[in-house]
Design a protein around this nucleic acid. Structure first.
Lengths: 192, 192
DNA sequence: CGATTTTTTGAATCATATCAACGTACGTGG
DNA sequence: CCACGTACGTTGATATGATTCAAAAAATCG
């Protein structure tokens, strides 16, 4: 598996030293996750965090009535994992499923904590990314209510147009918090 | 200022050693924040994280049209701060305002990082709480869309009834993502 | 190719927003 | 300590964006 993307991310973010990279990789295991397969499912403990080398996963929750709601899509360069579950060994309420065949770098808790401890720059970048993600989720809460469905769709179109091409529309709808029918109508409207 | 609550939180979470507590406190400064005053405002860098000893703050964002949306209320025992801004020195897009006179323990970046480095148990508890908060925000995103306004209100009533007593209703409405009028109607409905 | 999944369209319905008016509580200065 | 002004909360009438349900059309997969 090509691990270049992982290195490039670390280099561009914190100038991670190329000569340390092979040692860092020791803490990770390449893993191919087939389309529709799950990285983890609710009720279980997340044994691994995954860096997405290739592909796309949906991270979602299922309500009591069985409705699914997508929190985010993990694409190339993202971390996928139920962090609280991963670090504390508790059951997660989230699910992560591959929407395409994926190439992942997995790390279990022991390895990951060793990696964080051994490579300060890696640790710094990881912390930053996590905090950035936390902020992004907070912003998304505000947006869900301050913006109309149409505005949210337009924003997504502008910020992550690639998503709309690779992900089935009913998943986009779930991410936006509307029904597939409503999304279809919004698209029709914006086409004209 | 009474710092017992801070110690109790650390003790119950990670059995923080009582004899280390005075040393930990060295990294914090007591601070009284008056009602309506801001801990930080959007556009600025968050210079401090704050542990809430007493009082309640609202953490919110303002849209381009000037509408406010409350992300969470920080009550006793919570951390309040724009973490990404705090650690990375970038401007925050959030605001934190005291809803009551508050007693806070402040720590600037340097002190806070020293504290994290010097007290592994403190660091562990901080990381856990942050991750728990992250998970909670993700769950809130799902709820915002899977549950109706009425269900969200009932859930809040059940889980944090104290909030409804101490916080003005239009803030609760903002937190729930509905108008004050709608909240008023929901309340009327549930009264009967 | 047929079978399944996904997307589109239509019509009826519903939850919540909006706008406007009124009542109430609150705290601030005289 | 009262009176006044501003904040906040309630209520009603109407508007609207999004949902639901049903069905057809289109795309995708084995």
């Amino acid at each position: 598996m090509q691990t270049r993307l992982f290195y490039e991310h670390l280099y561009s973010a914190v100038q991670f030293d190329e000569k340390d990279f092979p040692a860092l990789l020791e803490y990770f295991t390449p893993f191919y996750l087939r389309k529709k397969h799950f990285l983890f499912q609710s009720g279980n403990v997340c044994k691994y965090v995954a860096f997405v080398m290739k592909g796309c996963l949906r991270y979602f929750q299922i309500s009591e009535q069985g409705e699914e709601h997508i929190i985010y899509f993990a694409q190339e360069g993202w971390w996928a994992g139920g962090l609280y579950s991963f670090f504390n060994g508790t059951a997660t309420s989230f699910n992560a499923q591959a929407l395409e065949d994926c190439e992942l770098l997995l790390s279990d808790k022991k390895s990951f904590e060793s990696a964080l401890a051994s490579f300060p720059k890696f640790s710094e970048e990881y912390r930053r990314k996590t905090q950035r993600a936390y902020t992004a989720v907070q912003e998304r809460i505000a947006e869900a209510q301050l913006l109309s469905a149409e505005e949210r769709y337009n924003k997504l179109m502008k910020e992550q147009p690639s998503l709309l091409q690779r992900v089935p529309q009913h998943y986009i709808a779930s991410f936006l918090g509307i029904t597939p029918e409503s999304l279809s109508r919004l698209r029709k409207k914006s086409r004209r």
